[in-house]
Amino acid sequence: MPEQASSTTGSETGNTSICEVLQILGAKWAFLVLNELLNGPQRFNQLRRNVSVIKTQSLTDTLRHLEHNGLVRRQVFPTVPVTVEYSLTEKGSDFQTALKEMDKWVQKWGNSRQIDERTGAST
């Protein structure tokens, strides 16, 4: 098997990197949660309101996955009732660069940009 590992091509290595990123991020909502937490620490219900397109269970699963992979910190405060706050770790904050690049890409190529089929001009 070591021979197979040494014979990977550049594109296979790139695919492996992309797969690793997707495994770390996990759920499809991870990008949205990470982007929201860039605004600072948030309690669960505040985060749920801010990313209202995500169902509660999906948000819970996404936060658990991101915490397990070291991108999100879950801090429990001993209050009555218990207060839980979510924030980005250094690893999670470092993902901001990738999110900004994704934002640039969608600004250029996203669905909100309409092309006039007759002239090819942007509207």
Rank of each mutant, 00 (worst) to 15 (best):
M1T: 14
P2S: 15
P2R: 13
P2T: 15
E3I: 11
Q4A: 15
Q4H: 13
A5V: 14
S6R: 11
S6I: 09
S7Q: 15
T9M: 06
T9I: 08
T9N: 06
G10S: 15
G10M: 13
S11P: 09
S11H: 12
E12P: 04
T13C: 10
T13I: 12
T13V: 10
T13W: 07
G14P: 04
N15W: 10
N15H: 05
S17F: 09
S17V: 09
C19T: 15
C19A: 15
E20S: 07
E20K: 04
L22H: 03
I24Y: 13
I24K: 11
I24L: 14
L25P: 02
L25H: 00
G26V: 10
A27W: 03
A27Y: 05
A27C: 04
K28R: 14
K28T: 13
A30D: 03
A30N: 03
A30V: 06
A30P: 00
F31I: 10
L32V: 06
L32A: 09
V33G: 01
V33R: 00
N35P: 01
N35S: 05
E36C: 13
L37R: 03
L37M: 08
L37N: 00
N39C: 07
N39H: 07
G40Q: 04
P41N: 08
P41H: 07
Q42M: 06
R43F: 01
F44C: 00
F44H: 01
F44V: 02
F44I: 00
N45F: 07
Q46S: 10
R48D: 02
R48I: 01
R48C: 08
R49I: 12
N50C: 12
N50E: 11
N50Y: 08
V51H: 01
V51P: 00
V51L: 03
S52Q: 12
V53S: 15
V53R: 13
I54W: 07
K55D: 13
Q57L: 03
Q57S: 01
S58Q: 03
S58R: 01
S58L: 05
T60M: 07
D61P: 06
D61T: 12
D61R: 11
T62F: 00
L63H: 04
R64G: 08
H65P: 05
L66V: 06
E67W: 08
E67H: 06
N69H: 09
N69R: 06
G70C: 15
G70Q: 15
L71V: 03
V76S: 12
V80S: 02
V80G: 00
P81A: 13
P81C: 12
V82T: 05
V82W: 03
T83A: 05
T83M: 08
T83Q: 09
V84W: 04
V84Q: 03
V84T: 06
E85S: 11
S87P: 13
S87C: 13
L88C: 07
T89R: 04
K91Q: 13
S93V: 03
D94W: 04
F95L: 02
Q96N: 06
T97F: 01
L99T: 11
L99H: 09
D103Q: 12
K104V: 02
W105M: 10
K108Q: 11
G110L: 01
N111T: 10
I115K: 14
I115D: 06
I115T: 12
I115F: 14
D116E: 11
D116S: 11
E117D: 05
E117N: 05
T119D: 04
T119L: 06
T119N: 02
G120N: 14
T123A: 09
T123E: 08
T123W: 10
